[in-house]
Design a protein around this nucleic acid. Sequence first.
DNA 1: CGGGGTCTTGACATACGTCAAACTCGGTGG
DNA 2: CCACCGAGTTTGACGTATGTCAAGACCCCG
Lengths: 243, 243
Amino acid sequence: MNTGTHRPPGTCGTCPIRHRAICSECADEELAVLETLKSYRTFEKGETIVWAEEPLTHLSSVVSGVATLNRALDDGRCQIVGLMLASDFIGRPNRASTAHDVVAATDITLCRFEKPVFEDLLRTSPTLLRRLLEKTSDDLDAARDWMLLLGCKTAREKVAGFLSMLVRRSVHESKTSPSDGMTVMMPLPRKDLANYTGLSVETTSRQFTRLREDGVIELPSAREIRVPNLARLFREAREIDSN
Amino acid sequence: MNTGTHRPPGTCGTCPIRHRAICSECADEELAVLETLKSYRTFEKGETIVWAEEPLTHLSSVVSGVATLNRALDDGRCQIVGLMLASDFIGRPNRASTAHDVVAATDITLCRFEKPVFEDLLRTSPTLLRRLLEKTSDDLDAARDWMLLLGCKTAREKVAGFLSMLVRRSVHESKTSPSDGMTVMMPLPRKDLANYTGLSVETTSRQFTRLREDGVIELPSAREIRVPNLARLFREAREIDSN
DNA sequence: CGGGGTCTTGACATACGTCAAACTCGGTGG
DNA sequence: CCACCGAGTTTGACGTATGTCAAGACCCCG
């Protein structure tokens, strides 16, 4: 993979995250400004995009790929506190650093702005500011949903909850309507799934096989997960089936 | 207690949360506008301020007192996903409802705006908008810190972590510098503490007595907690002692 | 065809939950 | 003023979900 910084391949008009990212409310005129200021950067799977407590130089949107937000304890324990998919925003304006690492879970492409440049944009564009508030509020809601999962749910419910979230986000992303029999890609290895759900690798693995044995999911290939019955999955996760 | 809506007792100029709340960056002129639009409302301990999934009519700041954000599973399991103290902002603009109840943990006073009114303010005041983004980002960071606690930490670390958070917020609030021997008030009963830390009442109680036996905390009275050695407490919580 | 990482499975250990009983304490009424 | 009540809390005994340790199985990539 050709990792590194380079000029964006296309215009914002044809950008795959055009109507969901931080820029989605911007008028064409404003978009033209962003276009001159943005740059793309790719990272390979496993690379650290942002180091916790280190100077934060860029703010970015995920164009494609997956990243995790990792918080670690000094003794090695680690919690994934966020999963960043296409159109998600990485970094915090007006803060020198972040409390968590940002790590590429797959090869990933970001649309980036230098931090001071983006901060200027925010100062002059209420549209951008409003949209960032909306995205941040969504992230906060998601974080609180996850607190419910971490604090209350059983191992089986946690794993089902993770899969439910994948399904919902996949649906949201592709704008397809949810349907029984749909398949999603598993973006994380077991270790990361464990660190995200607050379980051990072994327990997540066991729950995966249980869910398969019970017909809640099917595993056509290593990274594919087929869900024959969405309502069933949501029920296993103790989530409201608000299709 | 005289629960209900009424005109605010004083002007914003003398408000105890003047320089920390959503309005802290507003110029006097703008503050004068807010002053005509705000109203105070008090709730008694135990009252529900906002019902999950019900129409959200007001947005507000906590002037004094404590509230919890509660998410419940239909089988009775419950997770507290946020602790709202003085100057914290309650509610989400441009959303019809919230996913969690907001419940008064003590008698509490709010400074409120009708939702559409506040949304108008946000549209016309980038200052207010910017400050709301900042508060929301802070809440997000706090939620992610808590995910680390919920997902990784032991019962003792969780309880110590809760106390550490109380200490930090108390320091932040009173603008006193942190000092060994300071005491904080316990705002929540054991049941809520359990729901906040993802433990059972019995386990939280046991950890409280362990921490006392080990000299990490002292309990001069039912609601008071004295911390003879802050660094020790932070260490028990596995937090960085970033005084 | 071999080798290292990931995943799975099993046997066992333990931190924490559950159930049950006793204790504390602030409020209330006789 | 004191007895009593009930809610909240503490403590103990015991059960279990999940973690830990260890061995294999799988599988991608060279």
